[in-house]
Simulated scan of single mutants.
Amino acid sequence: VYDSVAFEHESSNSLRDAFMGRKPAHIYSRITNPTVQDFEARIQALTGALSVLAVSSGMAAISNTLIALGGAGKNIITSRYLFGNTLSLFEKTFAAWGLEARYVSMLNPEELAQAIDDETCAVFLESITNPQLEVADCRALSTVVRERGVPLIVDNTLMTPYLFNCAEAGVDIEIISSTKYISGGATSVGGLVIDHGSFDWSRAAKFKKRAAKFGKMAFIAALRQEVYRDTGACLSPHNAYLQSLGLETMALRIDKSCRNAQCLAEILAQRPEVVRVNYPGLADSSSRPTASRQFGNKYGGVLTFDLNGIEECFSFMDALRVIRRATNINDNKSLILHPASTIFAEYSDEEKKRMAIRPTMLRLSTGIEDYEDLIIDLQKGFASL
């Protein structure tokens, strides 16, 4: 683990050449670091991507990507079904700088096609929306954006490359919060920008000069030489080490988490106290057909269910002893949350309604505990109602 800030060079000429980009060398850990570079190489091997950039968080991955692509007068096409902080980034932070967010239903490729114009710099969505759990057909969306010369960006945090091969679905840039499944049980915060090398950057006006010089590496070059370097979004070497360790057990943990989610979703669907259950793996889920095509027979470790009211939701949560009342998802521990009063608390009731954030909805992220223990814990919650 190279917990170093700066790296000594054998001569003044060597240091100059490193700064001038004439030789590959580490200079300063905000720019590159050997431990972080090793983690990036592991992700590249896992995904088969053209290039990978590890950053300080999932939100840093999203913001760095869109800062590199966008600008004043440009627009991004997205959905209102997004993680609350991502939506805030689009509507508040970026809007103040003149980058417009346009909202469409990602279930309707024709609506997406109509929203794209000459100032569209990206199309952004989540592979499974959090917490609405909507699944769009990424291959169909890719066909639309490729015809219009716009990169397709997918936040694949809930599925990871283990469950969803973004490159095969035509995704150009994959975003991941490595804090979640990859970290190995919420050991560290981090994010990933994964460039699958499928977009022709010469078609984007902002990247024409870089595309002429760097070809398919133009986007990553823009991040490393400018945006990532200048915003200081670097992943710490120690976190990179912890997340490299997390990769070693990731498949085992994801498999167990998905099994637990499927089991609990089926049990919750049978409870009379539950108004509705949403999980793409349920036979009656509207997302099931698309999810099965894209993800195979695993549907992630997050589900939602509704009770009759807010008081019932809080009583249920407060009675739990194994499942933790906490934010985060895809932890080793099962976590439960009331989205309307927490991660979407800053939004009005009308805004929450547009985002399908119901006051009666609970989000459950299943960990790797024995599912029998989780069932017993849920029974305690129901007994409190």
Rank of each mutant, 00 (worst) to 15 (best):
S178E: 03
K180R: 15
Y181K: 12
Y181Q: 13
I182C: 09
I182A: 13
S183R: 03
T187H: 12
S188D: 11
V189E: 13
G190S: 07
V193T: 07
V193K: 02
V193F: 08
I194P: 00
D195M: 03
D195Q: 02
D195V: 00
G197F: 02
G197V: 02
F199E: 00
F199S: 03
D200F: 02
W201T: 01
S202A: 13
S202G: 09
R203E: 08
A204C: 10
A205G: 10
A205Y: 01
K206V: 00
F207M: 06
K208R: 14
K208M: 06
K208S: 05
K208E: 10
K208F: 03
A211V: 00
K213Y: 09
K213L: 14
F214G: 05
K216C: 05
M217K: 14
M217S: 15
I220P: 04
A221H: 13
A221K: 13
A222P: 05
L223Q: 07
L223P: 07
R224C: 11
R224V: 11
Q225H: 11
E226C: 10
V227N: 02
Y228E: 00
Y228L: 01
T231Y: 10
G232T: 06
G232M: 04
A233G: 09
C234H: 13
L235Y: 05
S236G: 11
P237W: 04
H238R: 15
H238W: 13
A240W: 03
Y241R: 14
Q243H: 13
Q243T: 09
L245K: 15
L245P: 08
L247A: 08
E248Y: 10
A251T: 14
R253Y: 12
I254A: 08
I254V: 13
S257E: 09
S257I: 01
S257M: 14
R259A: 15
N260G: 11
N260I: 07
A261I: 07
A261N: 06
Q262K: 14
L264D: 09
L264S: 09
L264G: 09
I267H: 12
Q270M: 12
Q270S: 14
R271D: 07
P272D: 09
